[in-house]
């Protein structure tokens, strides 16, 4: 298949690692050649976490060349704007969980909080499709990633990956109640 590059971002503690590994494994289950790389760094301490996934037969580096991401998945609004502005292709797609973890300059009143309009304005000018996800009744904030994953599938944002591939990937990585809860949330959003 043609190269398809996914850039995942968020703040340390949001569960970027899990959603990234589910997509990586789902792509593999679907028979795609795929590789990924995580940038950990100081992420655990409230910094930015990035994971990059690249599918396709002509992909060599796990690192996405700048401005070449076909899809940005963000679990936080500021990071959604940052990634859309720096790594996303024109006319590509941004999906983000609409929560805000204010970065330090915003809390110190040195910068304005990023708004939904900021994201829309930036993306409209470049023909980027924007999907904002939010769910009020999540049992655990650590399941925001699963709400986003469900929407990724519902909108068919990653070519050649079916529901069964996502489900198989989840079963690779989770078990027991955690698997049930996460798969339940993933499925529920698809049927409502």
């Amino acid at each position: 298949m043609k190269a398809f590059s996914i850039y995942l971002t968020g703040v340390g503690g949001q569960g970027i690692g899990l959603i990234s590994e589910i997509i990586l494994r789902a792509a593999d289950h679907a028979g795609h050649r795929v590789k990924s790389v995580d940038t950990h760094g100081l992420a655990q301490r409230g910094g930015i976490v990035v994971s990059q996934i690249r599918m396709g037969d002509t992909v060599f580096s796990p690192l996405i060349p700048s401005g070449q991401a076909d899809l940005v998945i963000s679990l936080e609004r500021h990071e959604a704007l940052r990634a859309a502005g720096t790594v996303l292709k024109d006319r590509a797609c941004l999906i983000y969980y609409n929560t805000v973890w204010q970065p330090l300059p915003v809390r110190l009143n040195q910068a304005a909080e990023v708004t939904e309009n900021d994201i829309r304005d930036l993306c409209r000018g470049r023909g980027i499709q924007v999907i904002s996800v939010f769910q009020t009744d999540l049992p655990d904030i650590r399941m925001q990633n699963m709400a986003v994953l469900s929407e990724i599938h519902r909108h068919g944002l990653i070519p050649g990956i079916d529901r069964k591939h996502y489900q198989a990937a989840m079963a690779d990585l989770m078990s027991g109640a955690m698997l049930e809860e996460n798969r339940g949330l993933f499925d529920k959003r698809l049927t409502t």
Binding site: V11, G12, G13, G41, L42, A43, Q44, R45, G46, G47, I48, S66, G67, H78, E79, L81, R82, A84, G85, T86, P103, L104, P105, V106, Q110, A111, A112, V114, D118, L122
Partner: peptide, 19 residues
């Protein structure tokens, strides 16, 4: 050489911090 210059970061920077 790449036609487009590297895009400016449109969001406030996010230094790591204590939990």
């Amino acid at each position: 050489s790449s036609q487009t210059a590297e895009a400016d970061d449109p969001a406030p920077h996010r230094p790591p911090q204590m939990c």
